[in-house]
């Protein structure tokens, strides 16, 4: 396999002369979950935005499936940070998810019954089908995050970029998101996640990209997520680096304590259930019809064949 989902070569980004990322090069293999890690201001989100062409770059190149981003845009799904939008916007959950289809619709064409159906299926996948008609400001933070995920699913991409999807969500939502990520991986999709919680890295990700203004290391979690590399990434700032890298069991413990927590709200419980059921239904996949472009692989196609 010569073509990588993402190849970043010498990428340099600067905000008003101050370089935020300098000469970052790495490539990621297909069908993996990749965590992008680094301290605040390390340029994680900046890298994501530069790759997506949201901010100008000073130098370097980005190839997605061997092509420029412009040419392969429809293969890419994006989950921005939740705080990046005003949730008081007059719209409902279903409508936001349908926005994921706009790229396929092109100029002028309006979303119709087909888009509505796809959006409903994507909402169901993240356990949010019951909230389709809910005004988005009436959703909890975790639910808003899942709406954003559903919107990315509706994009029906093969490479996903997620900017801190786990920020400020409860244990239930975190589980729902992770089961969704696993499902995507099973379908052969590649997901790049900007992540902060070092204690869950070993459990969640196959590969990691360590950033600190420049690339510290990139590769399989096993080989790359080491104390030495983390020290290079975070400096002396993290006292318990040793703990994090050695004890992958620790996160299991945390999981158990989260599960047995007796005080869970009704909606959270319902959402948790829905999240699980979506996991068991993974084999069915969402049936998204082929678009005019041959490049589009229907969600779930891999799991069906």
């Amino acid at each position: 396999m010569g073509i990588y989902p993402l190849e970043v070569d010498n990428l340099t980004v600067a905000y008003q002369k101050k370089p935020v990322l300098s000469s970052v090069s790495f490539r990621i293999p297909s069908g993996k979950l990749i965590g992008v890690l680094g301290p605040n201001g390390a340029g994680k989100s900046t890298m994501l935005k530069a790759v997506l062409g949201l901010i100008p770059t000073v130098g370097g190149s980005v190839k997605i499936f061997g092509q420029s981003y412009k040419e392969s845009r429809k293969k890419v799904g994006y989950v921005p940070q939740r705080e990046s939008v005003d949730w008081d916007f007059p719209t409902n959950a279903l409508d936001v998810v349908m926005m994921g289809r706009y790229g396929h619709l092109g100029w002028f064409r309006r979303p119709g019954a087909k888009e509505r159906r796809i959006a409903m299926e994507c909402l169901a996948k993240v356990g949010m089908a019951d909230f389709a008609g809910r005004q988005i400001s009436q959703l909890s933070g975790g639910q808003q995050q899942r709406v954003f995920l559903a919107r990315a699913l509706a994009q029906n991409a093969t490479l996903y970029f997620m900017d801190e999807p786990f920020a400020g969500v409860d244990a239930t939502t975190e589980k729902a998101i992770i089961s969704l990520l696993h499902e995507l991986r099973e379908q052969g999709k590649t997901v790049l996640v900007v992540h902060h919680d070092l204690s869950t890295v070993k459990e969640y990700f196959d590969e990691v990209v360590l950033l600190n203004g420049k690339l510290v290391a990139a590769g399989s979690t096993e080989e790359t997520f080491t104390t030495a590399n983390l020290q290079k990434t975070y400096g002396g700032r993290i006292a318990m680096l040793q703990d994090v890298t050695n004890a992958s069991d620790r996160s299991d413990e945390a999981e158990v304590s989260g599960e047995s927590s007796p005080r869970r709200s009704k909606t959270a419980r319902r959402a948790g259930k829905a999240g699980k059921s979506s996991m068991t239904n993974a084999a069915d996949g969402v049936d998204i019809p082929d678009e005019a472009e041959g490049a589009d692989v229907p969600l779930g196609a891999v799991s069906r064949t």
Partner: peptide
């Protein structure tokens, strides 16, 4: 449709190629 997405989430719209 275009004005709506640009007003709600310009970053996402740009990533989508709008």
């Amino acid at each position: 449709k275009e004005f709506k997405l640009v007003s709600f989430d310009p970053g996402f719209a740009r990533g989508m190629g709008m």
